[in-house]
Amino acid sequence: MQQIIPQLSYIDILRYLGYRNTAIPKALEELIKSCMELTLQTIQPKSIYHRYPISVLSEGIAVSGTNIILKGKSIRNHLLESKEIFLLAGTIGIEMDKLIRTKMVSSPDEGVILDSCATTAIEMLMDQTENSIRDLCSQNEESITWRFSPGYGDLPLDTHINLLGALDTSRKIGLTVSRSLILIPSKSVTAIIGVTKKVIKIPPQDHCDTCSKNSDCVYKKAGFSCSNQSNA
């Protein structure tokens, strides 16, 4: 459950900060590096996953052994090839929220950089977790879909509640959800991954199709994609 993120991706941090290939003053570069260091010292990356059979019901996809019904067309399409799924959840912990909150008061420039470092960290944590699942599946000659989170497409955000309950995240990794369906700690992710028998190749723009910002995405305009899967 406890994971290690050895290093943060500098280029991802810049991307989350809206960087567009301009000169970065040396002092700022040093500040970003020190924020990366501080982030690595502060985060407590933890993730958890579990495999479940699924069955298609009229009201949605039922996850066996839980009270989860995955509703909507998007998740149904996503899991077309799957009979089993992984539910996964990850968080980098509450200390990072506190650090960002503090820095936004005393030095907001560090605050926004740390926020991007934290977003980078949770993405890296989820990538690592996804890779563990992929490795596990490849031993059985299975493949997996990309990770699909509540709030994507028409999969309701309140899916968080039962998903967190099924994985017992509040006890196991300290991840809870607020009454407004905000994940707490704020740099956290829940997701669903389908297990498939054959290799699924999803072109990256598919991520964007399910995003509400697709029409006026700042990353897209700048020629990037955010690949941001969190609510961070």
């Binding site: 810049l14 900060l17 809206g18 960087y19 567009r20 301009t22 003053p25 700022l28 500040l31 970003i32 030095s107 907001p108 420039d109 605050g111 926004v112 950089i113 700048a222």
Partner: peptide, 14 residues
């Protein structure tokens, strides 16, 4: 215009 990015804007503001 994209000549500077967010941390620089914030640094100027602070």
């Amino acid at each position: 215009r994209g000549e500077i990015f967010l941390p620089q804007l914030i640094q100027s503001a602070t």
